[in-house]
Amino acid sequence: MSFLELKDLRIHFPTDDGLVKSVDGLSFSLERGRTLGIVGESGSGKSVTSLGILGLHKGGRARISGEIWLDGEELVGASQEHVRGLRGKKMAMIFQDPLSAMHPFYTVGEQIIEAYRIHNDVSKKVARKHAVDMLGRVGIPQPERRVDSYPHEFSGGMRQRAMIAMALSCDPELLIADEPTTALDVTVQAQILDLMRDLQRDFNAALIVITHDLGVVAELSDDILVMYGGKCVEYGTSEDIFERPEHPYTWGLLGSMPRLDREPTERLLPIKGSPPSLINVPSGCAFHPRCAFEERTAGRAKTEVPELLETEGGHLVRCHLTRERRRAIWENEIKPNLEAS
């Protein structure tokens, strides 16, 4: 069994308007030292997935089913107290906006020390030394001085470094980063991506990066999972996803992005419509109202939920089009348009 394994994870929230199926049957596995990128738009369920793994999806009302295996332990059925003991120690998380994710009234040091001392029975002095070490390790200059600063006294990039130091303080084996660079400037984003890559190598943790930015995913990930409407629509190595994508939604994402590494195209190739509401997920394939190739499925896309099937060597696709058809569309209709004529 892999280090982290999700089996048919479902997280549903009953609301006054109906049942919100944020995550609806998600399965994947991840080994130590590997990085998985989860890509999706707002409402795809990518953030709820990460909170679900940590047991942080909003308590009482959420309905969670399926299995989450972390290092041989099942978490969905485990007691809250047990999962709490693993949080911060065995699995840790980095959030999008480090300014709002750190408590404004406590110093950066206090917050790291707190994280360390929950799981390690050490004196404040030892914990403080550890906090200074961690701050130095994530590249914060003069850590013995900065440890006593408040989050608002840090710049955006330094804050995210501090956040990473806090998450890594107990040497976690699973690290989840939810849009870790979205709130940062471009040059600072590049620094943080470098740092995360280096630290992952040093810590040999399993890393999940959740983002809407295909560039960030390409920089970090070994494997990529594309989510749409609470389900995985495509999964593969990053080469699979960027060079041989087979799902129309993945094609749409690639066509939507202007790219610096290629000649500019005349027009972007967007996906029509908007991401679905998770209360009223479209019938059949959730993507079918926005799919440009829906009519080539002979109506199946409207009525039948497609299975997530292997197309080749671990590359999974959830689509009614046949493998041959998808490959032909990619080669003849999509790929040529992505590059400027």
Partner: peptide, 14 residues
């Protein structure tokens, strides 16, 4: 509902 509460929970605080 603040983000920092989620962070505190993610640290494993009671």
């Amino acid at each position: 509902n603040e983000d920092y509460i989620r962070t505190a929970r993610a640290k494993g605080l009671s």
